[in-house]
Amino acid sequence: MTTLNINGVVHNVTVPDPNMPLLWVIRDIVGLTGTKYGCGIEVCGACTVLIDGSAERSCNMSVSEAVGRKITTIEGVSADGVSHPLQKAWIQLQVPQCGYCQSGMIMAALENFPGGDGSGISNVCVCGTYQRIKAAIVLANTL
């Protein structure tokens, strides 16, 4: 049995392989699907979560590394899903297109929130929403 603290909730889960990346434990075993698989090699950032407040790419982080630490996923950003300043700004500026990378983008932005303009984010968005992401982070700092 592996014990994980995800968004303040303790999950006791059976993991078939201790090397299983945290991403797939979160998605397939815990059942929180907001964290996305994009590349599996820590390049695209779609799988970004916070571990003790630091943005980490969960696709290549073994679940055992996350035990005993505070894991925050996109589902834990706010209780109602729309009231965090980043979420408000994302909606106000109509940031997402397909939206698939946006969980990772918001988690990357959350690491340094409030502050900054997101210029250090290296996640990939094929739809090309970067300009709006930057503007939304700047706006969220004021909300």
Partner: peptide, 29 residues
């Protein structure tokens, strides 16, 4: 008018369901 798109709120909180997120009972992978 630049109306707010209907699909966007669920794309900022992980609730949007893409194909890859579908989970059905007794499913294997």
């Amino acid at each position: 008018k630049p109306l707010a798109r209907l699909d966007i709120p669920n794309k900022v909180n992980g609730r949007a369901i893409y194909g890859i997120d579908v989970r059905i009972p007794n499913m294997v992978y």
